[in-house]
Design a protein around this nucleic acid. Sequence first.
DNA 1: GCCGATTTGTCCGTATGTATC
DNA 2: CGATACATACGGACAAATCGG
Lengths: 241, 241
Amino acid sequence: MPKAIYQVIYRDLKEKIENDEFAYQELLPSEHQLIQKYKCSRNTLRRAIGCLVTDGYVQTMQGKGVRNIYRPIEQTSFTIGEIESFRESAARNGLTPRTRVLLFAELTLDERQAAHTGFPVGAEVYYLQRLHYLDELPLILNHNYFLKEAVPGLTKEIAENSIYDYLENTLHMTIVNSRRVMTVEKITEIDEKYLKLNVDDYNCLAVVSSHTYNSDGTMFEYTQSRHRPDYFRFYDNAVRR
Amino acid sequence: MPKAIYQVIYRDLKEKIENDEFAYQELLPSEHQLIQKYKCSRNTLRRAIGCLVTDGYVQTMQGKGVRNIYRPIEQTSFTIGEIESFRESAARNGLTPRTRVLLFAELTLDERQAAHTGFPVGAEVYYLQRLHYLDELPLILNHNYFLKEAVPGLTKEIAENSIYDYLENTLHMTIVNSRRVMTVEKITEIDEKYLKLNVDDYNCLAVVSSHTYNSDGTMFEYTQSRHRPDYFRFYDNAVRR
DNA sequence: GCCGATTTGTCCGTATGTATC
DNA sequence: CGATACATACGGACAAATCGG
């Protein structure tokens, strides 16, 4: 899929690191050596390394080299700083995903809804409530708003599978950018019902709200994901610049 | 402080965007124009733009231009994807920070503590419990573990102010990389006491655990931050690559 | 402490490809 | 179709940090 050279090198190195071909804290081969190995220019190689840095896989040290600091992440986890669909996360964790569509509606947003979602007043959207299961355990209750004009022809059947797959492979839309806010909120009756939670146990859950943009620069999706607190686990890697 | 040209350009553009010199969704001047303005090479300018992209400030569109998608973030918020100290967050939000040191101890880690923190067994560390107030409201209860050998001379007085300031300006250490995990946990008695929480209200809180590396590649800090749920608000921007 | 070799960091100029208008 | 805009890639130059002799 990725035809850019730097991406091929990036993926190759990433895979090698994940497969323990370099010990933790060990130095990778020098730029010079890698340039010869991949037969590319220095800029191209450095770009691939830069991607590994932002992923938190390696750390570069001027005058010394590039150190492997990768640590495998646990099961049942989601990464942030990357855009990944529920199905992709499930696959990465080797678990079986299932999605149940609780509600499939078409809306014209009023003022209150517009303020809530970030879409303009009067925007035509699909509004979905979806429940995501992992190995038959309900984990996430999603409230999705998709701009109709950007996501034409969305159906309940598609929503039961992967909407992102539809966006990318059928509509050929490119997802570029997703801005997310994480908060903790009180459990509602709906949460309790569908996520099979007991207020006497946990009385709140993790909420991730996201605004997602496509390559046209239009914000086409607002989603609020309500996560079972005992399975919620988000990773992040921050780099000081 | 930043002497690299691309960083100067990056900061200048960032400031202009924050100060509304470009309307939301408006295109920035083209690369060609900006190159002439800043009198730099194309690579250098593109590097500055690339930083703005990962910050979620702009979006580049091949054949079209670079679009401003910056939205100011609300008060009392923390950003992820960036490394920022409590005092820096407070300053950015125009609030008054205060830190109370509840415990200042020196430990030699046993097996259980080593597994918990990620340090090796027998590591000599400073163990601190600190309570962070914003405008006199206790918001975050921190459990900090600092490797003694990497952070020599840490005192209670320093811990009451900014440890990061001490690390960077006195020890001249460079923080490079921080790996974080966000979870939701039940409130403990200690949380209840210091964060002035009532179990009948919220019975859980947001927990951010982080492993931080310096430029030597040594992990010198493990911190668990326990956040009051009603004020917890974390931002993230994800870019599909 | 100095020097030279190695390694990463920054910057430049140029060429070509691809998408948009 | 041509002009414009961003994307990828190359090769070269010098700077800065590190390490070993």
